[in-house]
Amino acid sequence: MSDTLDDDKPTRRDFLYITTGAFGVVGAASVAWPLIDQLNPDASVKAVSTIEVDISSIEPGSFLKVAWRGKPIYIRRRTTEEIAEAEKDDNLNLPDPQKDIDRVQKKEWLVVVGVCTHLGCIPIANQGEYEGWFCPCHGSHYDISGRIRKGPAPTNLEVPPYEFVSDSLIKIG
């Protein structure tokens, strides 16, 4: 809106109006934030967004399946043969190349999200041609490091964020 008045300098009146307007905008934005933030995960959801799992009762060669953020997690205690098997294939021409050592914190323990990276079905443990998992939906095979070996899945099974609280307790998330 162009002003045809003679004084081009901003007047005290303009300063007042601009300040008031600025306050109004800040006020409106401040009110808007809580109304949007309420959509974010609430405290009760965040409280179960990390879980602690007691792994002391898992025998070598067996696994535990737990739920984390609504998804299944496989915690697998690998035997020395299984670890060797996983590392042997490190340098093969894999669909999603990754060394086994980059997928574990302690070689004995493999922690992966049990969701097929193709279209989201849950692969079945101890099945498939690679000693790992087999997804029945479209035939993806994962090995004993959770890497995709055969089938339509594009990437390896996801490794969730986790840490060893102690030798018998891991915290996921």
Binding site: L16, Y17, T19, T20, F23, G24, V26, G27
Partner: peptide, 12 residues
Amino acid sequence: FLIIFVLLMFFT
């Protein structure tokens, strides 16, 4: 904030 804003609105 509101007290200042009310004053600003009053003068405006």
